[in-house]
């Protein structure tokens, strides 16, 4: 039974696209058939983080407008063959997305894949609303910072009222993904703690992704961090999150840098 997951946040720049790529790749690496869809029409970036930017021929808008068939627009990942992506259009505007068109595409994708992951644009306009409308589950990406927490609260309210499930009187399963977390700064009282954000937003925690240079390095080369640096702290955090997403009980922890013998002997290298 296919599951539609929206990765959303309200605020921009908190790590939606990074998390979509990492969660999608991690699910595919564990053998699931996965498609990630970019809903950010006009400002697509999922292709860049997946490293498929030069392979885009047709996009979501082409499929919706009947200019291409779905299989023509789907791009299969060269590293994990159960991972696919459907890019957004870079030239059209967000009005090119229609509710009927999106419903048809999601319906077709549900027949082909185990997981349909929708990367929402920032904001609360049409693109974001369409990205969340068909969701069975949502990953709310939040930074431990006031504006991000406030926007996440707003988005959680919308998941409870503006989705197909909400209209049928059902619930969208909601998960909090706390990204760019600094355990040391939180400990010093300079950053909201995990418990603070959980208490304020009161939705279950899917994972804590620590701030790490591995995330930028992965995006630089166009490879999801779970493929580029699976043993890095964010890599391991995304793998744990994916296990929890599939119902596995994994103890919650903030992964730390694994230190090799050399760095243990000679201390940390200078960043």
């Amino acid at each position: 039974m296919a599951k539609v997951l929206v990765v959303t946040s309200g605020k921009g720049g908190v790590g939606k696209t990074t998390s979509t790529a990492a969660l999608g790749a991690a699910l595919a690496q564990s053998g699931r058939n996965v498609v990630v869809i970019d809903f950010d029409v006009g400002l697509r970036n999922l292709d860049l983080l997946m490293g498929t930017e030069r392979r885009v021929v047709f996009d979501l808008v082409n499929v919706i407008q009947g200019e291409a068939r779905l299989p023509q627009a789907l791009i299969r990942d060269k590293r994990v063959d159960t991972l696919h992506m459907l890019p957004a259009s870079q030239t059209k505007d967000k009005d090119a997305l229609t509710p009927e068109g999106v419903a048809r595409v999601i319906g077709e994708l549900k027949e082909r894949f185990d997981w349909v992951i929708c990367d929402s644009p920032a904001g609360i306009e049409k693109g974001a609303m369409l990205a969340m409308y068909h969701a069975d589950a949502a990953v709310v990406v939040t930074n431990p910072e006031v504006s991000s927490v406030r926007d996440s609260d707003r988005i959680i309210g919308m998941l409870d009222s503006r989705t197909a499930r909400a209209e049928r009187g059902e619930r969208v399963e909601k998960h909090l993904l706390l990204t760019r977390y600094h355990p040391a700064r939180a400990l010093r009282g300079d950053m909201l703690k995990v418990e603070d954000v959980l208490e304020i937003l009161s939705i279950p925690l899917l994972g804590i992704i620590p701030e790490s240079e591995a995330v930028l390095a992965a995006s630089n080369v166009g490879t999801p961090v779970t493929l580029h640096a699976p043993d890095s702290p964010p890599g391991r955090a995304y793998f744990d999150a994916v296990k929890r997403l599939q119902g596995e009980a994994v103890p919650m922890a903030v992964p730390e840098e694994k230190r090799g013998l050399m760095s243990k002997l000679f201390g940390r290298r200078v960043a």
């Binding site: 406030r150 609260d153 309210g157 009282g189 909201l192 603070d196």
Partner: peptide, 23 residues
């Protein structure tokens, strides 16, 4: 003085109000 408790308190007050308005 650590700033995180201030952030937490401001958010709790603000969101209690915003939830009442939009909800």
């Amino acid at each position: 003085r650590p700033s995180a408790p201030v952030a937490r308190e401001r958010l709790q007050i603000l969101l209690a109000h915003e939830r009442a308005v939009s909800g």
